[in-house]
């Protein structure tokens, strides 16, 4: 749980330019990230950015992006905020959950859980 080794932190500092909060509108841990069509062809990106653009060609929640990159969530969000500012990904706006769950989704979820 504790990490005394400063090495990884220095690397993270480099990834985010020292920032620990993403730019622009905040987004949730399960907000859906989608790569904007064509943007994964950009060549001059750091590996982490390329990895996100490749992964999010399929809509992917923020938490999954973090796990995939093996980076802390706050660092991942800085990276995602940067990619959004560059117009390379879209991040769904957070929505109150009650509005997102209609009868059909509710039935799907219950059925899906029961058939696990």
């Amino acid at each position: 749980m504790t990490g005394e080794d400063p090495g990884p932190l220095i690397r993270l500092y480099g990834l985010t330019g020292g920032r620990a909060r993403p730019q622009g509108e905040t987004f949730d841990l399960v907000a859906i990230v989608v790569t904007v069509a064509g943007s994964h062809e950009f060549a001059d990106l750091i590996p982490e950015h390329r990895a996100v653009l490749s992964l999010c060609r399929r809509p992917t929640p923020v938490a999954d992006v973090a796990a995939h990159l093996r980076l802390p969530l706050n660092i991942t969000r800085v990276i995602l905020g940067d990619l959004r500012r560059e117009g390379l990904v879209t991040i769904e706006r957070p929505r109150p959950v009650a509005q997102t769950i209609d009868e059909r989704i509710y039935r799907e979820v219950l059925h899906g859980l029961r058939s696990l």
């Binding site: 399960v30 907000a31 859906i32 989608v34 904007v36 069509a37 809509p59 929640p61 879209t90 769904e92 959950v97 997102t100 769950i101 989704i105 979820v109």
Partner: peptide
């Protein structure tokens, strides 16, 4: 900008 028919949703 997405081609998804139904929006992806993570609960």
């Amino acid at each position: 900008g997405t081609t998804a028919v139904a929006p992806a949703l993570a609960i």
